[in-house]
Design a protein around this nucleic acid. Structure first.
Lengths: 277, 277
DNA sequence: GTGAAAGCGCTAACAC
DNA sequence: GTGTTAGCGCTTTCAC
């Protein structure tokens, strides 16, 4: 006797199949967080692409803490591959994995010192694009507003900065950037009202960044996160500055309310197939 | 001889363990999409809660199409439970699963006709809260702006509407709601410029909704999605209306730039433990 | 072609 | 306690 439609409703146990075939159809994904629109979008793209090839996403959110541990746990679950937006600052851990033959693709951020597959926007090009955007509109003293408190800015921000500066340098226009470590404000002012939401935090950070200046020593702002750009717009407007007539503001690939550089999403799929899944 | 630290770096195969113990530590999650901030947040909350109890999220995005199929595929993977934001409009499918004993929790939306565990914001209370917010600020002719094109509005919107109306009815204030099926605009106007982004779509929808009116026959707007509320604010401002001085705008639990009703996130964890994982 | 057998890596049960 | 065994559900192999 044969299948006979397998008792009219048989569904194979993919777990057992996975064990036997040593291929689970699972792809582990590690992202720092999905509250920001950027990773949410990327994740949505990844899920779509994987669904199309009948794979499933095993999602973990590292929240800047447990990246390695989570990666290990995904490997324990025998994922067929890993997609990681890493916050790691050394190549050792992932080098070990690569040496083990683990299929590994990084997204958004490069791991310093590691030579591996990476899918990310061209931050340099994006920075240059936005620089041109501002220059074309006649802005002459743009500010470059980042929000990191690391000793060195992370690579992608550095790249945007270089791209951005290249435009204003080539045109020999005055540029007045400040790469303020604006989160510092909060640490140095425990007395300030504690920001409850990210929007409030942005505003507090802005206040801190602008405190040393008289008025607004710029006519445009390139904010490294669009959420931050929105806060800036709000801040400027609340000080009676018209946007974008008096001060232009651009952000970067994080949010869909502001100017943006690239979609960065459609490129996700390619390397997955490339890597052989 | 014993473990001897199990060859100094042994990691059990969770797949095999899952097969043997009939418990994988996987929870299947089905959401319609994660580009909107709402489900992204909920997902982040779910992932956190599950991480805390050493479970993993098997994520699928239904995109309004393949809900049942995705659920089946998650069950094939032997998930220990399912968390579903269902767009189903009948109880049959999930009744079968419940009868099978599948641990099932619904989030955000109730499945019509189905009696099952549900975690969601209290939309009635939220609607009432926002109604009071507007009433306290002296707005007398609020508009209730939904964006559905279904024959009947989905339950949660209906609930918000009832909660909202209860406030304005009790106070015997004039109310001027319109539940416009605003997406229609796009279908009826193929000549209009095709919106590329969701923001543009919102604007187009707004134009459609307001077309029948002269000016603005309301002094406040309760938008059902915060993204939509932002579009409204933009729209009003571009017509020279001051917000919120002339027209007040509130949205609902979707976005962190506007007023909001509840967090809706912290409640996610409870029923997961409740259901026994 | 159809059928039987072995084994993926683990753990629960039962032995010593 | 320490060791052995059987079997979770599937697929691959090998035999018929």
């Amino acid at each position: 006797m044969l299948d006979i439609a397998e008792e009219a409703g048989y569904r194979p146990n993919r777990l057992a199949r996975g064990l036997r075939r040593a291929r689970t159809g699972l792809i582990g994904v590690v992202v720092p967080g999905i509250e920001g629109q950027f990773y949410a979008r990327v994740l949505e793209g990844i899920e779509k692409a994987l669904q199309d090839v009948d794979h499933r996403v095993l999602l973990t959110v590292s929240r800047g803490e447990q990246e390695h541990e989570l990666v290990e746990s995904l490997l324990d679950m025998q994922v067929d591959g890993l997609i990681v937006a890493s916050e790691d600052d050394g190549p050792e851990f992932y080098e070990t994995l690569l040496a083990r033959g683990v299929p590994l693709v990084f997204i958004d951020r490069e791991v310093p010192g590691l030579h591996a597959d990476l899918v990310a926007t061209d931050h340099f090009a994006g920075g240059a694009l936005l620089g041109e955007h501002l220059r074309e509109r006649g802005f002459r003293k743009p500010a470059f507003l980042s929000m990191t408190d690391r000793p060195r800015p992370i690579g992608c921000i550095e790249d945007r900065w270089c791209g951005f500066r290249s435009v204003y340098r080539n045109a020999s226009l005055l540029h007045h950037p400040f790469m303020g470590s604006v989160k510092r404000y909060l640490r140095e002012r425990p007395d300030a009202p504690k920001p409850e939401t990210f929007s409030e935090l942005c505003l507090a950070a802005l206040r801190g960044a602008l405190e040393p200046f008289q008025g607004f020593p710029f006519d445009a702002v390139f904010a490294q996160y669009d959420h931050f750009a929105l806060a800036m717009i709000h801040f400027l407007r609340s000080h009676g500055i018209r946007v974008p007539e008096e001060v232009g503001v651009v952000g970067f690939d994080d949010h869909d309310f502001t100017e943006y550089a690239e979609p960065s999403l459609t490129t996700i799929r390619q390397p997955l197939l490339e890597i052989g899944l």
